[in-house]
Amino acid sequence: MQHTPSLAADAASPSPAGGRSPLFCDGPLAERIERAEAQLMAEACAAARRRRADTAGFVMKVAGGVASYAEPESPFNKVAGLGFGGVPSAGDLDEVERAFAAHGSPVQVELPHLVDAEIGAVLTERGYRLVSFENVLGRPLGDERVRDLPEGVEIRTSGPDELDDWLDVVADGILEPDTQGLPSHEEFPRDVAIGAMHDLTAATGMVRYSALRGGVLAGGASHRITGGLLQLGGAATAPAHRRRGIHTALVAARLAAAAAAGCDLAVVTTQPASRSQQNVQRSGFELLYTRAILVKELT
């Protein structure tokens, strides 16, 4: 019998504040989210090749997900969406590991906790090491309305003439993160971070937003819509403009736009216990599942 992704718990279950039943994530819903993430990685790698005007990098299908490599130190160098096509074979993993090794790169696997636990055992036996976690949160969409903005703050879509300034301010925010919660296991050089954000903006369906405070560009964010699913891209606020409600305003604007476009679900990835997670939970997001980050270093 085929299952459809579940967006809510049984109607008889207790409702949280606001009268909405808790969001329930089963395997099919997690698979929907992970397939969208894998597709985004593939599109970002293709955009990186276009930016560099070369054929370097790769995207390989593996066990329902993709193994992707864009360029040295890129955040797109990973295995995403793994496990919803079954346990990867030794031959599949050999091929993936050879491809990364040919580029002098370790292999990073983002493994959702809702897949077969045997995958974790297989990876561990091959020398993969648990290095971190990240949380995937979701929120059903209905009749969303943009909240009143904080005084002096404006949120608008960002045009191509503003791209360089947008990249600069988002890079400033990303490269000086808040210290709340578990730190990320990854750090990227500024030029790599800017290149990666440029590539993400070129992905199918990606829309950029700018936040202005007092007329000054103070932050930015992006989103992508695919198959009724809103993927919230990284939002960042320049350090001088933090604690002014900008992050929350950027979330609200994107939720309203996605609801107007007919999306039924919004998802976002955060570091555990981070301020970003705290902000999106205040906006109605709930924890759906956690990804374990496993890395096999070059030998």
Rank of each mutant, 00 (worst) to 15 (best):
171 A>E: 01
162 E>M: 14
206 M>C: 13
168 D>F: 01
219 G>P: 14
242 R>P: 04
185 H>Y: 05
154 E>S: 13
155 I>Y: 04
262 G>P: 00
231 Q>T: 14
165 D>Y: 00
176 E>F: 04
223 H>Y: 15
149 L>F: 08
149 L>E: 06
225 I>D: 00
148 D>C: 09
208 R>I: 11
238 A>W: 00
205 G>P: 05
236 A>P: 02
208 R>D: 04
242 R>S: 02
196 A>R: 11
219 G>N: 09
174 I>C: 14
267 V>Q: 15
187 E>Y: 08
188 F>E: 05
251 V>W: 07
164 D>W: 05
190 R>L: 02
208 R>A: 15
166 W>N: 07
220 G>I: 06
164 D>P: 10
226 T>K: 13
195 G>N: 14
219 G>R: 13
152 G>S: 14
226 T>M: 10
267 V>D: 02
193 A>V: 12
189 P>D: 01
263 C>T: 06
176 E>Q: 03
214 G>I: 03
150 P>E: 15
253 A>P: 10
174 I>A: 12
273 A>V: 14
269 T>Y: 10
190 R>G: 05
171 A>M: 04
212 L>C: 14
169 V>A: 06
258 A>V: 12
253 A>W: 09
197 M>G: 01
215 G>F: 01
236 A>F: 07
260 A>K: 13
207 V>W: 04
248 T>V: 12
228 G>W: 00
170 V>Q: 08
152 G>A: 06
173 G>R: 09
248 T>Q: 15
148 D>Q: 10
231 Q>K: 10
167 L>Y: 00
183 P>Q: 14
158 S>R: 13
252 A>V: 08
152 G>L: 02
171 A>F: 05
269 T>E: 11
253 A>F: 03
239 P>L: 05
208 R>F: 12
159 G>I: 06
207 V>M: 13
186 E>G: 00
181 G>V: 06
207 V>I: 15
254 R>G: 07
166 W>V: 15
274 S>N: 08
229 L>K: 07
166 W>E: 13
203 A>G: 11
223 H>R: 15
231 Q>Y: 09
201 T>H: 04
229 L>G: 09
193 A>W: 00
216 V>L: 09
180 Q>M: 13
271 Q>R: 14
193 A>H: 02
151 E>A: 07
211 A>G: 02
155 I>M: 01
157 T>S: 10
210 S>C: 10
187 E>F: 15
231 Q>M: 14
183 P>I: 10
223 H>F: 15
188 F>S: 07
262 G>A: 00
